[in-house]
Design a protein around this nucleic acid. Structure first.
Lengths: 195, 195
DNA sequence: CATATTTCTTGATTTGCGTCAAGCCTCTTT
DNA sequence: AAAGAGGCTTGACGCAAATCAAGAAATATG
């Protein structure tokens, strides 16, 4: 694998490795990409993106975990997505429309983020059409999975076990239940039922 | 408005008008865009995109209406989106990944479509970065609305009345119910309840 | 170390939606 | 005009999940 031959260490190695799962990039492409990244630290419970904030970047979680939430009138916010180490994240709606966000993104643990600003993404696309593939990154983020619409709560939980087992190790039942759109009591009973 | 001064008639006028809601384009941009469009007619009940088909274009509904469905194991397909005259449509997942689709798109009425092929979109982006805004079109299509996750069936129906009233005029109760992820009986009762 | 707080579990009860079934209305077909 | 089909409504019933409530276990705090 080409990236394995890189002998200059970079804190962004994990981002670059992840990028390469989206296509074949030259060393020059990768260097240019890396030059466009910056770093950001966010403390536990602080916000990567506040409600009604403008999302001007795509992020990559070098370390930590985040919760993407949708505020609700009666105060019962809903979890719309969960991110763990080495996930890409952004608020798709705000980022693509460049309008204030409806949702917000909060650090569940202390986070180290690699940041790709929107203007940097545009520069990348100008630089090489291969970075249009970065659009694919966006695609990965919008993980409100339409297939799950047809599944029962138990099926959704089993699907979660299959597809995102790391979430079970990272987030408490209450958060997972909200993500699955069921009550914590129901999730507890599902767990008991299927062991 | 600039587009109103165009004196050469084109069957694609509605597409061009719609495009302009995404940004400010020069006459040259618009002509180039228009030169990349083609036309396609789809008869009622025929498929704009078949299940496991490769979605290689973004479409604009010049006339007619379409249903975007997700097939289900037991034969009870689920409506994931509905489109009426002057809507953009595509299968986001298949289009962006260029892999076979999970869902399919069927003409509910006879349809006239303007077609923008993926290679044409790439040419547009090369031509002028303003067409990166076409990414915004994609955004509009992926209308599996996350805000609706927190709403009850009745609230989702009220939301539909507010935001997409044209759907009520176009599609029968059975289709709307599937789109709202409730049974036709429940939708009928909601209608009675709220008059 | 003791107390407070959060997380999870378990039970009892309620409720909203789905399912099944019957019937009405409109439109089409013969 | 009669028969059939599709779309919609309405009622009866059952059930899965929500709600309400209590308590146990784990974790945090002074």
């Amino acid at each position: 694998m080409k990236q394995k031959s890189r002998y200059i260490w970079t804190m962004y190695q994990a981002v670059i490795d992840s990028l390469q799962s989206f296509g074949t990039f030259s060393e020059k492409d990768l260097s240019f990409f890396e030059s466009k990244l910056s770093a950001r630290a966010v403390r536990k419970n602080d916000f990567v993106l506040k409600e009604k904030g403008l999302c001007q970047a795509i992020y990559f979680l070098l370390d930590g975990s985040c919760i993407h939430m949708l505020p609700s009138a009666n105060g019962t916010d809903t979890v719309v997505n969960l991110y763990t180490k080495h996930s890409w994240l952004t608020d798709y709606q705000s980022f693509t429309s460049q309008k204030p966000s409806v949702a917000f993104i909060q650090a569940f643990e202390d986070c180290q983020l690699a940041v790709l600003e929107i203007h940097a993404l545009h520069e990348l696309i100008q630089y090489s059409p291969i970075f249009f593939k970065a659009g694919k990154l966006l695609e990965m983020m919008q993980y409100t999975d339409i297939t799950s619409l047809t599944l029962s709560p138990e099926e959704r939980y089993r699907d979660l076990i299959d597809r995102r087992p790391e979430l079970l190790q990272t987030f408490p039942l209450k958060i997972l239940a909200s993500y699955l759109r069921i009550t914590p009591e129901t999730l507890s009973r599902i767990r008991k039922r299927i062991q």
